[in-house]
């Protein structure tokens, strides 16, 4: 295995771990979204590394990256839409105060 691939995969693993920590520990919706962004960033590094070091001739790998970037943009758009609605309704985007959504 190429050492470069290992460097990229370790970076992805670390970003994924930090993102999981952020998504679970933060009470603020915007901070929570930052955690999800880091998780997706970890996936991005892996995808680019797989393309570069395993299949540089196949551009389907680039497509995967574009799809993950789309997911990042969609997550931000919907997240901020929800944040605005929540802020209008309750004056706060603290998720601790959204326990009634539990059902």
């Amino acid at each position: 295995m190429s050492p470069d691939l290992l460097v990229a995969l370790f970076t992805g693993a670390a970003l994924f771990g930090i993102g999981v920590y952020g998504a679970l520990s933060q009470t603020n919706l915007v901070m929570l979204m930052m955690g999800v962004e880091l998780i997706l960033a970890g996936a991005l590094v892996n995808l680019v590394a797989f393309w570069r070091f395993l299949h540089p001739d196949s551009y389907a790998g680039h497509m995967f990256v574009l799809i993950v970037m789309t997911v990042m943009a969609v997550e931000m758009a919907v997240g901020f839409g929800v944040a605005i609605a929540r802020f209008r309704a309750r004056g706060s985007v603290e998720m601790e105060e959204a326990r009634e959504l539990k059902g």
Binding site: L9, A14, V20, Y21, G22, L24, S25, M31
Partner: peptide
Amino acid sequence: MSHQKRLSILAGVAAAVFS
């Protein structure tokens, strides 16, 4: 602005190590 810190750190480290 954080909660369940210990669990989150555990989950984050476990996810990174597992990956």
